[in-house]
């Protein structure tokens, strides 16, 4: 599904190049639940953003299914991104001015889903995530756990093939975190490919494979039994 070949990412500051990612080679199959781990500054988030097509590598190849992403223009990339990928953030990134219902509706609007279908899809996801009662509340009226629940629901609503999660439990207490991780596990079992970035060993155990990054390189790549 995802194939990265000798990927480089650096920031140039006048004469000095600071490498964030160096020679990353990685293959991820459909249906995997991959955890990316590593100390701060090792390039985890950058890698995730590149996979999610929110950022571009300076060098190297990126194939998504059969598409050479590194050769596509912005419009084609965002088309691909829109149809296949859902993103979950540590700080939820919900739109403050929209209610839960409207936040969930936004991606569907951009995909030009028809009104009736949209309504049933939102009703369905609200039900699945058990947040029907919260649908008319604004993000700041929700607890962190619930906000992240909405964040995941928003990522899942378009039935993406791939979910990318950047420290999804980072701002949550342990009980809330566990709930979220169970949700990911369930989604994985239903067939969604998931890539998460985390510091937590415990969260890593929910996945099937752990990629360790160190100073922008793949340090270790292990399967979880």
């Amino acid at each position: 599904m995802i194939q990265l070949k000798s990927l480089f990412k650096y920031y140039s500051n006048k004469f000095v190049k600071t490498y964030v990612l160096q020679d990353i080679n990685l293959q991820i199959q459909q249906g995997e639940f991959v955890t990316i781990m590593g100390p701060s500054g090792s390039g985890k988030s950058t890698l995730l953003h590149i996979i999610g097509m929110l950022d571009e590598p300076n060098d190297g190849e990126y194939h998504f299914f059969d598409q050479p992403v590194h050769k596509l223009n912005e419009k084609q990339r965002s088309e691909l991104h829109k149809n296949y990928i859902g993103f979950v953030f540590q700080s939820y990134h919900l739109i403050d001015e929209l209610t839960v219902y409207e936040n969930l509706e936004t991606p569907l609007l951009y995909q030009k889903v028809k009104t009736t279908e949209r309504k049933s899809m939102i009703a369905d996801i609200l039900d699945r995530f058990q947040i029907v009662a919260k649908k008319d509340l604004f993000p700041n009226q929700l607890s962190g756990g619930h906000q992240q629940l909405v964040g995941i629901a928003r990522a899942v609503i378009v039935n993406p093939k791939l979910i990318l999660a950047d420290e999804p439990t980072g701002n949550l207490n342990s009980a809330q975190g566990e709930e979220i991780m169970n949700l990911f596990k369930k989604l994985h079992q239903e067939g969604t490919t998931i890539i998460q970035v985390t510091h937590s060993e415990k969260n890593a155990t929910y996945g099937s494979r752990i990629v360790h990054l160190l100073d922008g390189r793949v340090d270790r790549d292990v399967q979880v039994s």
Binding site: F87, H93, L94, I95, T106, P107, Y110
Partner: peptide, 16 residues
């Protein structure tokens, strides 16, 4: 910009 970023992440193209 946060909102703009968010909308782009969930699939907005620039024209929208």
């Amino acid at each position: 910009t946060k909102e703009v970023g968010m909308r782009k992440v969930v699939g907005a193209v620039r024209a929208e």
